[in-house]
């Protein structure tokens, strides 16, 4: 999932997919990406403000044509309710990363300086390490990770992106009624 496609005109796209919260939905969607040989960068699933609906956020580096095809294929899955490609200009997007850095007495203060600059948090301290929690856009997280690399990263875990549009509207507004709970 981590590798991105190295196509010429590939741009980063973020899709928000509303699905019925039902068993096996993620398997169907992940399987669809795999068999249409569609490389994704990240995928996040979470519940939404409506318990019967889950929301997937997918990011991928792709050209326009394969993207359109995969959106159409996703739309054919019956459990998929709504797909929107989020416009980066009107979207707030965040990722979360936990990094365990090899920081000892000698360079701990240097690392803490970085943590402060990036408005990240230290969530665990040890004589040999610091664990840092950071949230932000992909670019900010990448920059922080580049800088921390220098001190030695012991362990790293990073979430996929989650994103919402700016303004008062919800994506699920477009999914009418409580039809789904009828089951």
């Amino acid at each position: 999932m981590a590798s991105s496609t190295s196509q010429s005109n590939a741009k980063r796209h973020t899709l928000s997919v509303l699905v019925e919260n039902r068993p096996g939905v993620l398997a169907r969607i992940a399987g669809l990406f795999a068999r249409r040989s569609f490389n994704i960068d990240s995928l996040t699933v979470s519940p939404t403000e409506r318990p019967e609906i889950s929301r997937l956020t997918v990011t991928a580096h792709v050209e326009q044509e394969p993207l359109e095809q995969i959106i159409k294929q996703l739309n054919k899955l019956l459990h998929v309710l709504k797909i929107v490609e989020l416009d980066p200009d009107t979207t707030v997007e965040r990722e979360l990363v936990l990094i365990k850095v090899a920081a000892d007495v000698q360079n701990r203060s240097d690392v803490l300086e970085l943590v402060r600059m990036f408005r990240a948090h230290v969530i665990d301290v040890n004589t040999e390490s610091l664990t840092i929690e950071a949230t932000g856009s992909q670019g900010k997280i990448d920059a922080l990770m580049d800088l921390l690399q220098h001190y030695g990263v012991i362990e790293l875990v990073r979430s996929g992106a989650v994103a919402v549009t700016r303004g008062p509207k919800a994506l699920s507004d477009k999914v009418v009624g409580s039809e789904i709970t009828g089951r």
Binding site: V19, R22, P23, L26, A27, P47
Partner: peptide, 14 residues
């Protein structure tokens, strides 16, 4: 009980 998001992984509703 509310279905959890990770139910999406499972084949059988719990």
């Amino acid at each position: 009980a509310r279905p959890t998001p990770l139910q999406a992984f499972s084949g059988v509703p719990k």
